[in-house]
């Protein structure tokens, strides 16, 4: 699979601002991210997310994720001292609701979604290990 070219990387100017740098061949990884992602790391993340990947998929995603990290390298090059981290793209804070009860779902309807039910609870296979 072919990955689209990224924009040229940003580079810090002597004045502290940012400007696009034309390197002739745009979007290549320039080594500023210390370690490109390895196949092992991708396999680890896939395991955590309970995704089963074939070898071909593993290779494909490793290459795609490397491209994403290259994009992060662009951001690393920015002068961000004094810039607060963005927690959310919307310029909103304190979206709150009043502490007022609302109707719940019908239990029979809820439990009908469960693979197995016992004593009005979700019945699940025996758990190995504790709650993390």
């Amino acid at each position: 699979m072919r990955v689209a070219y990224l924009d040229p990387p940003l580079e810090r100017s002597p004045g502290g601002g940012c400007r696009r740098v034309d390197r002739g061949r745009p979007g290549r990884y320039d080594g500023r991210v210390a370690q490109p992602i390895s196949e092992d790391e991708v396999a680890h993340v896939a395991r955590l997310a309970r995704l089963e990947l074939s070898q071909a998929e593993l290779e494909q995603y490793t290459s795609q994720l490397a491209q994403v990290l290259e994009h992060a390298a662009d951001i690393e090059a920015l002068e961000i001292e004094g810039v607060p981290p963005t927690a959310h793209p919307f310029p909103l804070v304190n979206v709150l609701r009043e502490d007022v009860p609302r109707p719940c779902l019908d239990r029979d309807e809820v439990l009908a979604q469960a693979p197995d039910v016992d004593q009005d609870r979700f019945r699940i296979p025996r758990i190995l290990g504790e709650a993390p």
Binding site: R102, C104, R121, F122
Partner: peptide, 17 residues
């Protein structure tokens, strides 16, 4: 969510999407 925060209610009655 608006589900009641009550201890000891019948199981799986205070749940919503």
């Amino acid at each position: 969510c608006g589900c009641p925060n009550v201890f000891g209610d019948e199981p799986n009655t205070n749940v919503c999407p």
